[in-house]
Structure formats: C-alpha cells, structure tokens
Amino acid sequence: MAERKVPGWLKTALDFGPVLAFFAAFFLLKEDTYPLFGREVKPFILITAGFVPLLVICMGALWALTGRLSRMQVMTLVLVVVMGGLTVLLNDELFLKLKPTILYAAFAGILYVGLWRGKSYLAYVMEEFLPMTPEGWIILTGRFAHFFVALAVLNTVIAFALSDAVWVSVKTFGLPIALFAFVMSQYRIFEDHGIAEEGDKDA
C-alpha cells in the first residue's frame, strides 16, 4: 500500500514529539520522588510511565495517517514498550536506558550479516534517495556498522556510569547530532561513488 501524504510538520511532531516531551518533563519535574501505582518513584520512572503510551499513541496516529510504519519505527516501538514496561514494573531506569544499546547493536548486526553475504542492506533502505555504486554502498555500510557499534558502547557506558540527566540529554540531542555529523563526514564516498540521475546527466 502506497504511503499517504501528510504535512511534514505533523509527521515530524509525531516522530519526535514523545522524545522531546520526555526531555522537557525530566527537567521540569523538581521533586525527588512521585507517587505511582501506590509507591514512590523517581522522576525518570514516572516520565517513562507516560512516555510509553504517548509513543504508542503517536505511532498509531502516524500509521493511521500514512498507512505505514518503517521497520525502524516498529522496532523502536516494540523495544520502548518492552524496556519501558520493565522500567516501570521493576522500578529500574536501566531497562529503558539500554534500549538504544539494543537498537544500535541490532542495526550493526544486521549490516554485518549483509556484508558477510556480500550485500549492503543499507542500500535497500536508502538507495532510492542516494544512488551510489555497489562498491560505495559496501564501504558506507561497513562504516555505518562500525559507527552503530560505537554508539551502542557509548550509550551503555553513559547508562551505567553517568547520571539520569546526562543520559537524557545525550539521548535527546547528543546521539542524533553524532549521527548527523557522521553522515556529513562521509561526503567523499558520496562524491566518489555517487551516481548522477538521468536529468543531471542531460543538464
């Protein structure tokens, strides 16, 4: 089924709204503990209890509006529900903190399997928007796989060694900025292995 068109601002709000709401709520809540299901919990746990259903609602709305969700969105949603649910149930923020580690490790594993088979699974996702030679895709896929491993290790270190506030800040802004910077740093591959569109060749 073809994806239905929705306003870009609405799609962006549904995609990133829950994460930004989590960030804002974390730094707005001032008390050390809050009541939740008959017990006192830290702000992180309370916000997680609201974040999980909010993400489910937003992803449901996105699916209803567009007619589809990407594999990454589905994987993220499943991990948030499972790890967020364990975070609230067991009153331990470490479960939700390790969600990015699992996600990045899964991405790296999938890309490594593809490379082992001589294929670029990254190309299956991005080739339509970024035409490149097969050699270029193999190189870029290997670098992305290494990068996702680094992100998984980084998130794990921050989750165990640093404060909730540091993790929330890095997760909300640091990791997306790192991903953007990494993509921008690969410009030489795009130049050396990019394939011009037919319209560009004729121009």
Rank of each mutant, 00 (worst) to 15 (best):
E191Q: 12
E31Q: 15
R188L: 06
M72S: 14
L111G: 07
I158L: 11
M126V: 06
G67E: 01
F44E: 05
A203F: 12
A150Y: 12
A49Y: 10
C58D: 12
D32V: 12
D15F: 07
L86Y: 01
A61G: 13
L89F: 08
L179N: 09
L14H: 03
V168Q: 05
T66Q: 09
Y187F: 08
S169K: 07
L20C: 12
F160H: 06
L29C: 08
R143A: 13
A161Q: 06
G114P: 12
F180D: 09
L94F: 03
A165N: 10
E3F: 06
A178Y: 12
A105C: 08
V52P: 00
G142A: 11
D192I: 01
A13F: 08
W167R: 05
G194Y: 00
E3Q: 13
L29K: 07
I45F: 08
G109T: 02
I102M: 04
L36D: 02
K201H: 01
L130Q: 10
V81G: 00
L111H: 08
F147E: 11
A159P: 06
G174C: 14
I189E: 13
F51G: 10
V113M: 15
F129C: 07
H193C: 01
T33D: 09
L86I: 03
L96M: 10
P7K: 04
T141Q: 12
R71P: 07
I138T: 06
A64W: 15
P53R: 04
P131D: 02
V88H: 04
V74D: 03
N155E: 13
L46G: 02
I45C: 10
A203M: 05
L20F: 15
F51H: 13
E197Q: 05
W9D: 02
E135G: 02
K99T: 00
T12R: 02
F107S: 01
Q73Y: 03
L122S: 10
A13Y: 05
A150I: 15
V113C: 15
L98S: 01
F180W: 14
V88G: 03
L115Y: 09
Y124M: 15
V52H: 04
G17L: 06
R4V: 10
I189C: 07
K99R: 06
Y112W: 15
I110C: 04
Y187V: 04
F190T: 02
F173V: 14
T133F: 02
L69W: 06
L111K: 08
N91H: 12
L77V: 06
R71A: 14
Y104P: 00
N91G: 06
G85F: 01
L111C: 09
A108Y: 07
I110L: 14
M72A: 13
A165Q: 14
V166H: 08
P7S: 07
